[in-house]
């Protein structure tokens, strides 16, 4: 039982980190696409659909990293009440992760549905890339599901162990400001 639990823990943490790394790769590819587009313009060439590709990479960089960022306490929340509650914090955390799980599963459901409909409706990018949209939208769906799994994972941890294991990283949160 314990070994199974540990294995599951390792698997889930590995998943979040892997998501983060895929997101990081997407960030690097944004850089590569923008640079390639600039060079193309300077040399009188065309990089068809560069703006669209950069946009898809942007979506992947965000969605794949959501769970990893949650795990590292990077998502912003107003924690005044949470810290004021002291040892009763657990109850409010259950509420937060409960709401969070519900909302992220809702998001996941419609993200998957969007992929399905984009495919069915043959929705194609309006840019020069003419990419079938369900392909880049898969990143959105996968990232949303990963976040929902992470939320549920932490909800279970709060319920069973009493704490989520996330330590809010205010330094990291501050970097967006």
């Amino acid at each position: 039982m314990i070994a199974l639990g540990r294995g599951l823990r390792r698997l889930l943490d590995g998943l979040y980190l892997a998501g983060g790394m895929i997101a990081a790769l997407a960030l690097v590819s944004i850089l590569a696409i923008i640079v390639a587009q600039m060079i193309a313009r300077w040399t009188g060439l065309i990089f068809p659909g560069a703006a669209s590709y950069a946009g898809y990479a942007m979506a992947s960089a965000s969605f794949f990293a959501f769970a990893h960022a949650l795990n590292r306490g990077a998502h912003i929340r107003v924690s005044l009440l949470l810290s004021a509650l002291g040892r009763h914090r657990r109850w409010l955390e259950i509420w937060c992760f409960g709401i969070g799980s519900a909302l992220t599963w809702y998001l996941s459901y419609y993200a998957i549905k969007a992929v399905y409909w984009s495919r069915k409706l043959n929705d194609i990018s309006q840019g020069q890339d003419a990419t079938p949209l369900w392909i880049p939208q898969m990143a959105m769906a996968a990232g949303a599901v990963l976040l929902a799994i992470a939320m549920t994972d932490h909800l279970v941890r709060v319920l069973v162990l009493g704490s989520s294991g996330i330590v809010a990283d205010t330094v990291e949160q501050s970097h967006g400001e």
Partner: peptide, 10 residues
């Protein structure tokens, strides 16, 4: 950078 921009993106 990936985490911070994901935070803003959400």
């Amino acid at each position: 950078a990936t985490r911070t921009s994901a935070m803003v993106a959400l």
